[in-house]
């Protein structure tokens, strides 16, 4: 007990001194204007990429390689968690909620799907994009599990289909990048590689950015759903049987 208190004091002292050291290292520039690459991005995104969301343009065009890596981190995690929980059959861990909730969910699903797709394909115009939309796609499968019982979703969409979607999303991303390389404009080049851009602010603008958003959306949607199902697989059977059908 005494040692534990001592340990805490040491930890607190360490953290406080670390914080003080970092606080002293702060720089607040007096000149509130953009400089460096940021100024260029703000001034030239429209003409360079055709996207109206500057953050999306940086994520998928100027610094698209980061996004490629970031999507790969999710891919790695999903693959690994599936490996950790491999070789276990999905057991039924719940029977779902009442018929009213099931019916209500059934009516909501199309809207959620439309919402998710709109987030994905309009990522270059409005805040949003592949990651956010993919996460919304994955919530649909989570809702399926909560409301219809744990076996429903796995019986409708087999894990193999999800894996195919996930891997093809990743390959689509790499293929768009290599297309730019083949055109001689560099990996993940956008307008230079011949992707055409419509008028700024329309759906078909931004060159390859919508394509990359779709690729990331496939990867993240299928990936997060696989992640969820790999973890839910190990839950135990409920003791009682199915609820009586009404």
């Amino acid at each position: 007990m005494r040692a534990q208190v001592f340990h805490r004091w040491i930890g607190a002292a360490l953290c406080l001194s670390l914080g003080w050291w970092m606080w002293r290292g702060l720089i607040v520039s007096a000149d509130p204007s953009l400089f460096g690459p940021a100024a260029y991005y703000v001034a030239n995104t429209a003409s360079d990429t055709g996207a109206s969301n500057i953050v999306a343009a940086i994520l998928f065009d100027y610094r698209g390689f980061d996004t490629f890596g970031e999507a790969t981190v999710i891919y790695t995690t999903v693959c690994g968690v599936a490996m950790l929980f491999a070789k276990r059959r999905l057991r039924r861990s719940s029977w779902g909620l009442s018929p009213i909730v099931k019916r209500g969910m059934g009516m909501m699903v199309p809207f959620i799907l439309v919402y998710a797709s709109s987030i994905v394909i309009m990522g270059h115009i409005t805040p949003g994009g592949g990651f956010q939309g993919g996460a919304v796609f994955a919530t649909v499968t989570v809702l399926f599990c909560v409301i219809y019982g744990s076996k429903f979703e796995a019986s409708r969409i087999s894990p193999k289909v999800k894996e195919v979607i996930e891997s093809s999303g990743a390959l689509l991303f790499a293929a768009v990048g290599l297309w730019g390389l083949a055109e001689g404009a560099g990996f993940l080049a956008n307008l230079d590689a011949g992707f055409s851009s419509g008028p700024i602010g329309s759906l078909f603008s931004g060159g390859a950015i919508p394509l990359l958003n779709i690729a990331v959306g496939m990867k993240v949607g299928a990936g997060l759903s696989t992640l969820f199902y790999s973890m839910i697989k190990i839950l135990e059977d409920p003791a009682e049987g199915p609820p009586p059908e009404v």
Partner: peptide, 8 residues
Amino acid sequence: MGGWTPEL
């Protein structure tokens, strides 16, 4: 990547 200058 993408044919930009190193800064961008």
